[in-house]
């Protein structure tokens, strides 16, 4: 049923895209598109190997900055990503997902790996103990965060946007928190259609 729905959605969007020129996205197009291809962070789900913020060829990379003890915004966003990818059906194989922890003090490699593994299949859990390295990556995305206080009263603030990066490492779309997952799915279908051409 999901595959049928994905097929119908894909067809409808392709028709819409052909009929009316450039597609209208739910996500925000930033101009010029920020280039994040130079950024890397260790991937806890790949033994700490450096991960480049570049999508697989003709695919997309979805990135979110958060922390695992975030009960509201982060799991809502990650669950939306999962729902959107389920709707994409087979095309979901062209989309990879990366979660960057802004709270490496509490998010150990193991905790982060469990968390990312729960929401994604083959996702990337990115974590560094080097605050300068983390800040540089966040800056490249235009994301911001702060972790203040001492346990157990730690307050984390973070940009809750979701980013779609293409295979050249350019941010194609930025979805603000609260974007419906169905709209994220529509945007992904449209972007994947463009990537193929």
């Amino acid at each position: 049923m999901k595959r049928l729905a994905a097929g119908v959605l894909t067809t409808a969007l392709l028709v819409a895209a052909c009929a009316s020129g450039p597609p209208e996205y739910a996500g925000v197009v930033r101009s010029p598109a920020p280039d994040v291809s130079a950024a890397t962070l260790p991937d806890v789900l790949a033994g700490g190997a450096p991960f480049r913020f570049v999508a697989p060829e003709d695919g997309l990379l979805i990135v979110h900055f958060g922390y695992t003890s975030c009960p509201d915004v982060c799991p809502t966003t990650m669950a939306n990503v999962r729902s959107a990818l389920e709707l994409l059906g087979d095309d979901a194989e062209r989309v990879s997902v990366a979660f960057v922890t802004v709270d490496p003090g509490r998010d150990s490699d193991d905790i982060l790996a469990t968390y990312v593994g729960y929401f994604t299949d083959g996702g990337h859990g990115l974590r560094t103990d080097d605050p300068t390295e983390l800040r540089a990556v966040a800056d490249a995305f235009g994301a911001d965060y702060s972790v203040t206080g001492t346990a157990p009263y730690i307050e984390v603030e973070h940009t809750a946007d979701l980013y779609a990066v293409d295979d050249r490492g350019r941010i194609r779309l930025t979805w603000p928190f609260g974007t419906r997952w169905q709209d994220v799915a529509s945007d992904l279908v449209a972007l994947l259609g463009e990537e193929k051409t």
Partner: peptide
């Protein structure tokens, strides 16, 4: 009881 708020583009509880 918590509330998520957005201040200066950042979310926090």
């Amino acid at each position: 009881l918590h509330e998520t708020r957005m201040v200066d583009g950042k979310h926090s509880m």
